[in-house]
Write a protein that binds this DNA or RNA. Structure first.
Lengths: 190, 190
DNA sequence: TCCCCAGAAGCAACGGAATTGCTTTAAGGT
DNA sequence: ACCTTAAAGCAATTCCGTTGCTTCTGGGGA
C-alpha cells in the first residue's frame, strides 16, 4: 500500500522527515534561529526528540539539511539572449540571495552541521548546474564559452568568499565586474 | 604589582585567558575536536565553567578565538626575486596549510562561532596583509602589479571556496594555474 | 600607605537538552 | 495473511548550559 498522487510521500519515515522539516521552517520564522531546539522542533512535528537525534545526530546536522534544501535553486536561469547578459544576471541574483542575512544564515548552517562536507558539496553543485545550463545554451548559440570550473573559480568563489569573510563593500557592481573580467580574459587568451 | 619580564601577562584575567587557550589546544590533541566540551576545558584550565561561558559565550566562540590565533601567519612571505614566483610560492603554501584536515577544521571553527564576522574578517586580513607585502615588494622592483583586491578575488577566493565546498581535486597545480591566469590577465589588459 | 571600588572569577543550584536501552508499531516482501 | 526489519515511541539518566549571589583580585585615589 502506497500513497496517493499528492505530495504525501511513502511510509512513516518520509512523513516524519517532512513534518520535521516543515516544523523547522515554521519555528524558524516564529521564534527565530537562536530559539530553535530539538525538543521544540520535535513537539511541533508531533515526534519524540529521540527520533530526531537518531536520524540527524544533532540540531546542527538537521539545520544543515534544511538549509541545503532552501539553497536549492527553484528556477532555471533566465535566457537573456547572450552569454554575457545571462551570466551577469545570474551572478547578480546569486549575490542577492546569498548575501542577504537569511542567505548567509543558511550558508553558515549548511557548512556548520556538515561533518563530511557532502552538504557543502551539494550547494556547490547547485551553482555549477546553473552555470552549466547557461554555458550550454551559449555554446548552442555558437558563442565561445569558458569552462564551468573557470566560472566557479572567478565568479562564484569571489562572491562566496566575500560573503563569508568580508561582507563589507560587496554589491551588484562587483558581481558585474567579475563576469566582465572573466569574459574579457577568456576571449583575450583565446 | 605587575608581572615579570616573561610571557605571563598582567592580571588574573590574562592568566585565565592563557590557561584556557592552552587547555583547548592540549585537549584538542588528546580527545579530538568532537570530544571538546566546556566543562572539560574548564577543568583542565583550572577554572570554573561559568567563567568560560561569561567570557566567551559558548564553546563555538571560544574555538573560533583559538582558531583565528592559529591561522595567523608566523612569517612574512619569502622573497623569490619576482612577483610571479613570490605569488606562486605563497599560494602553494597557503593551500598547503589551509587544505589540510587541521587547516580546514580551524577555518570552519573560525567561521562557525563568529556572530559578528569579526574573526572571519581577521582571517581575510591576514591573507590580504601577506599579499600586500608581496605586491609592495614587486612594485618597488618596478614590476607592474595587480591590486590586492584582485589577487584576493582570483587566487585566495577560489582556493578557499574549493577548500570549503569542494575538497576534491584541489592541488598545487591548480594554485599555480590561478596565479598564472591572474598575471596573464593583468598584463594583457594593461 | 592604606583603603576603596569596579570588574572578574568562584560557587551552587536549577532547568532542560542530549543520550541510550528497551518496547512497540508500521511498511514491504514472501 | 504473516513475518521480518527498520524506524519511532517511551522513559530514565547524565551532564551541559545558565544564572543569582558571593568572594577575590588588582588598580586608582585620598
Amino acid at each position: 500500500m502506497n500513497e496517493q498522487a499528492d505530495g504525501a510521500p511513502r511510509g512513516r519515515s518520509a512523513r516524519v522527515q517532512a513534518s520535521v522539516h516543515t516544523a523547522v521552517r515554521e519555528l524558524e520564522a516564529e521564534v527565530g534561529r537562536d530559539g530553535l531546539t530539538v525538543p521544540l522542533i520535535a513537539q511541533r512535528a508531533g515526534v519524540t526528540p529521540s527520533t530526531i537525534y537518531r536520524r540527524w545526530g544533532d540540531l546542527g546536522q538537521l539545520l544543515s539539511d534544511v538549509a541545503v534544501e532552501r539553497l536549492r535553486p527553484d528556477t532555471t536561469p533566465r535566457d537573456h539572449g547572450g552569454l554575457a547578459s545571462d551570466l551577469t544576471a545570474w551572478a547578480e541574483q546569486f549575490l542577492d540571495e546569498m548575501a542577504s542575512p537569511a542567505g548567509r544564515a543558511y550558508i553558515r548552517d549548511a557548512l556548520l552541521g556538515d561533518p563530511d562536507g557532502s552538504n557543502a558539496g551539494q550547494c556547490s553543485a547547485y551553482a555549477a548546474d546553473q552555470i552549466d545550463v547557461i554555458l550550454t545554451r551559449a555554446a548552442e548559440r555558437g558563442e565561445d564559452t569558458p569552462g564551468v570550473e573557470t566560472v566557479v573559480d572567478h565568479v562564484v568563489a569571489p562572491l562566496m568568499y566575500r560573503i563569508l569573510f568580508r561582507p563589507a563593500g560587496l554589491d551588484a557592481a562587483h558581481a558585474r565586474g567579475l563576469v566582465a573580467r572573466l569574459l574579457e580574459g577568456h576571449t583575450a587568451e583565446k
